[in-house]
């Protein structure tokens, strides 16, 4: 699973660097974000884990040994929301760029030099 993480990350970087189409760049960005989210989830993964909520009558020792770590899940939730914000902004910018330049090709959007 960690290998999948790395592969996703590399695919994302590749599509940002090598692809010219703005939307493909955006997709690459999203893939990178999700590879990191996956990594965070894997950090907290525990085989046969149970929800980290102590139910009534549950054995505390068993709960402590089996319950998954809740923190990475909370972190991933936050980072997904942040990713959503970034994605929305990127999409809005892409639409506005299309209005101004009439193209999605990043190599033609090059008025800034220097």
């Amino acid at each position: 699973m960690y290998i999948l993480c790395t592969v996703l990350f590399v695919i994302g970087i590749y599509s940002i660097i090598a692809k010219r189409h703005i939307v493909k760049k955006i997709i690459g960005m999203v893939i990178i974000e999700y590879s990191v989210n996956l990594f965070l989830i894997l950090v907290g993964y525990k085989a046969g884990g149970i929800a980290p909520i102590l139910a009534k009558g549950q054995d505390v020792a068993e709960f402590a040994s089996k319950g998954v770590d809740p923190l990475p899940q909370a972190l991933v939730l936050t980072s997904i929301v942040i990713g959503l914000g970034t994605l929305a902004l990127m999409a809005a910018l892409a639409i506005r760029l299309y209005e101004k330049y009439n193209t999605f090709d990043m190599s033609e959007i090059n008025r800034l030099r220097g």
Binding site: E33, V36, P72, L89, M90, L93, A94, L97, R111
Partner: peptide, 27 residues
């Protein structure tokens, strides 16, 4: 305007990659 959007998009892509690297480090 055209230039501002272009600059913003470049900044957004590079900035997001940087943020993602930082999150990776935190993880």
């Amino acid at each position: 305007e055209a230039e501002e959007l272009e600059a913003s998009f470049k900044y957004l892509i590079l900035g997001s990659i940087a943020s993602t690297l930082i999150l990776f480090g935190v993880a």
